[in-house]
Every structure is written in structure tokens, then in C-alpha cells.
């Protein structure tokens, strides 16, 4: 078994595009779920409207990338308002059901044949990221340390991605230690109490939904640029569930929780994938037990089991403080 390769791949995964995408998605979700207690199960929809907003604007209408980004951002805001306005006055589980339903509607619309003229149907869209890579300041070559290196395109996408992660974390940090963040946390604890103190709970929930959605939509941009393509089935419920796992892994309601969670998450997945692949090619595991194709399934089983165990035994996350358990303990 080539442990060098396994380690290299794990390190690449730790800082790679997937980590950035899910860190951003989870930072947004952390605002919803961790700080405000909103059960948003449609985070993938925010990624989708951003990714497709960008891709359609650029690839189908030939408009500039910047306009695509603006349209993506606006779509996320509109989506948040559409989802939140009717449901945020209702009990928490209604938001959960409406958001998951809306995310599925969004995905089905993007993959539908009838709209494929604009969306590319189930194949999705490509050819929209040239604008992004045309301003790449990195010249041809590989960047990184030793074998953990990336070519100039990936390096550029990662640079932009990690900058967005940093900015998002700073924003969340500033907001959550302000009186505004205090209101959000109070809503998570007991919204009636907050109402009784004269705060417009509905408005704050809506603001939280918009903020988290916009942060999630940054993930959609990075995903789109990183792959130079958008594909509808990436935006399924599993993406949202991965983001939940990451939020809980890193510790809900902690500024850096989602980032650390995403790094651990993708490092672990890379390790299991690579160790299994290597073990198979070394002949330790026979085809009767696990075919190469099935290695990909193991990852999902592990995520599932991991999410359950975390939630049952360490709901505060790997590094969390049990005292300030940010999840509902009732």
C-alpha cells in the first residue's frame, strides 16, 4: 500500500475545493441552525441558485461573470425571502419541510428536459468559467508544498475560495458578538421570551435566513468555478445533509466550527476512499466483499453512521463545550 499517496491525497483533500465548498455551505447553515435554531434543510438550493445563476447568465446569455455573481447573490436573497416569509411564523418543523421541498423543486427544475435549453438538463452547464480564470494571477505551473500541490487553475480557485471562507468567518465573528447576534442566539433559546422583550423575532429569523443563504451561495460559486461546470444532482438533499454533519462535527454556533468540520470531514473521506482503494489493489479485500464501485458507497455509510454517533454521543461537536451546547437539549 502506498501510504505516501494516501497521506498526500488526504492533505490535498483537507484544503481542496470540496472542503472550501462545504465549509462555506456549512458556515451559512451554522448561522441558520447553530446560531438561530432554524431548521433549514434546503441549503443545497442556495448553492444551486447561485451556481446556476452564474452559469446561465454567462454561458447562455454571454453576459459578464460579475453580473452572473450579482444575479446569483440576488437569487439567494430572493430564495431566502420566498422560503422564509411564509414559514418563519410557523412551528420549526414547517420550515424544515418547506425548505427540503423547495430544494427538491429547484433541483428538479434545473434538471428537467423542458428547461434544458437554459439549464442543460441533467447534464448541467459548462463553459462559463473563462471569465473567472482569465483574471487568474497565477502563471502556469504547480503551487504548493512537495506533493501537496495544485495547478494554476485550482490554485486560483482555492485562493478565491479560502479568501471567501476567511471573509465569511470574520463577518460571522463580528455579527455574533454584536447585539444583533445576541438576538439570534436568544431566538434559538426561546423565541417567545425574545418577543416579550420587544424584538421582532420574525424579522431577525428572516435576516438570519438571508445571511446564511447568501453565505451558502458563495459555496455555489466556488463549486461552479472549481469544476468549471454545474450539474443538478450535486444540489440534492445529500449535500445539505453533509453540511449538517460538518456543522455538528465542528461544533454548532462556533465561528470556525464549520471550517474545521469541513476539513476533518473531507480528510476522513479521502482517507477511507484511498485506504480502501489501496487495500483492494493490494489484494487485502476481495471483490466478493467490496468492488471498486462500492467503495464510493462506503463513504456515505460512514457519513451516516458518523452523523448518528456524533449526535448521540457528542452533540457539541468534536471540540465543543458541553456547557454551551448549541443544540436543542429539550
Amino acid at each position: 500500500m502506498d501510504w505516501g499517496l494516501i497521506i498526500t491525497n488526504a492533505l490535498r483533500a483537507m484544503v481542496g475545493i470540496d472542503t472550501v465548498v462545504f465549509a462555506l455551505a456549512a458556515i451559512g447553515l451554522n448561522v441558520h441552525f447553530g446560531y438561530t435554531g432554524l431548521l433549514n434543510f434546503g441549503q443545497s438550493a442556495f448553492l444551486a441558485v447561485a451556481g446556476y445563476g452564474l452559469a446561465i447568465t454567462v454561458a447562455e446569455f454571454g453576459l459578464p461573470t460579475l453580473l452572473g455573481v450579482v444575479i446569483g447573490l440576488l437569487s439567494a436573497v430572493v430564495l431566502a425571502l420566498l422560503l422564509g416569509a411564509p414559514t418563519l411564523r410557523l412551528r420549526a418543523d414547517y420550515l424544515a419541510i418547506v425548505t427540503i421541498a423547495a430544494a427538491e423543486i429547484v433541483r428538479l427544475l434545473y434538471r428537467s428536459v423542458s428547461l434544458s435549453e437554459y439549464t442543460g438538463g441533467s447534464d448541467g452547464l459548462g463553459r462559463f468559467s473563462e471569465g473567472f480564470y482569465s483574471i487568474n494571477p497565477f502563471s502556469d505551473g504547480r503551487y504548493g508544498i512537495g506533493r501537496v500541490s495544485f495547478d494554476e487553475r485550482v490554485t486560483w480557485a482555492l485562493t478565491v475560495g479560502w479568501s471567501l471562507v476567511l471573509l465569511s468567518c470574520v463577518l460571522v465573528f463580528l455579527l455574533m458578538r454584536s447585539p444583533w447576534g445576541r438576538v439570534l442566539k436568544a431566538i434559538r433559546e426561546d423565541e417567545d421570551a425574545v418577543r416579550s422583550l420587544g424584538k421582532n423575532v420574525y424579522s431577525y429569523k428572516l435576516q438570519s435566513l438571508v445571511l446564511g443563504g447568501v453565505l451558502g451561495c458563495l459555496a455555489g460559486f466556488v463549486y461552479a468555478w472549481g469544476r468549471a461546470a454545474v450539474q443538478p444532482d450535486f444540489f440534492g438533499t445529500e449535500t445539505t445533509f453533509f453540511a449538517y454533519t460538518i456543522v455538528i462535527l465542528g461544533g454548532a454556533a462556533r465561528v470556525l466550527g464549520p471550517v474545521i468540520g469541513a476539513m476533518i470531514f473531507w480528510t476522513l473521506l479521502s482517507l477511507t476512499d484511498n485506504v480502501l482503494t489501496q487495500a483492494k489493489s493490494a489484494g487485502y479485500i476481495s471483490d466478493a466483499i467490496l468492488t471498486n464501485f462500492e467503495i464510493g458507497q462506503v463513504r456515505f455509510m460512514l457519513v451516516g453512521i458518523g452523523l448518528m454517533l456524533l449526535m448521540i454521543f457528542r452533540p457539541q461537536g468534536l471540540f465543543g463545550d458541553r456547557r454551551e451546547l448549541a443544540l436543542d437539549a429539550r
Binding site: S178, V183, A186, E189, A193, S196, L197, Q207, L211, A326
Partner: peptide, 24 residues
């Protein structure tokens, strides 16, 4: 309805009205 996972002081500050810092 004490807000359990907030400190006593945070509970109190939440009650103050007209806070500029409560705007986004």
C-alpha cells in the same frame, strides 16, 4: 423563559430597547 445557554448579563442586555447594535 430564561435563555439557558446565555449568561445572565446577556439575558439582561437583550431587554434593552432601541439598540443600534441590533441592526444588521
Amino acid at each position: 423563559k430564561a435563555l439557558s445557554r446565555m449568561t445572565v448579563m446577556q439575558n439582561m442586555l437583550l431587554g434593552a430597547t432601541g439598540q443600534k447594535g441590533e441592526g444588521f
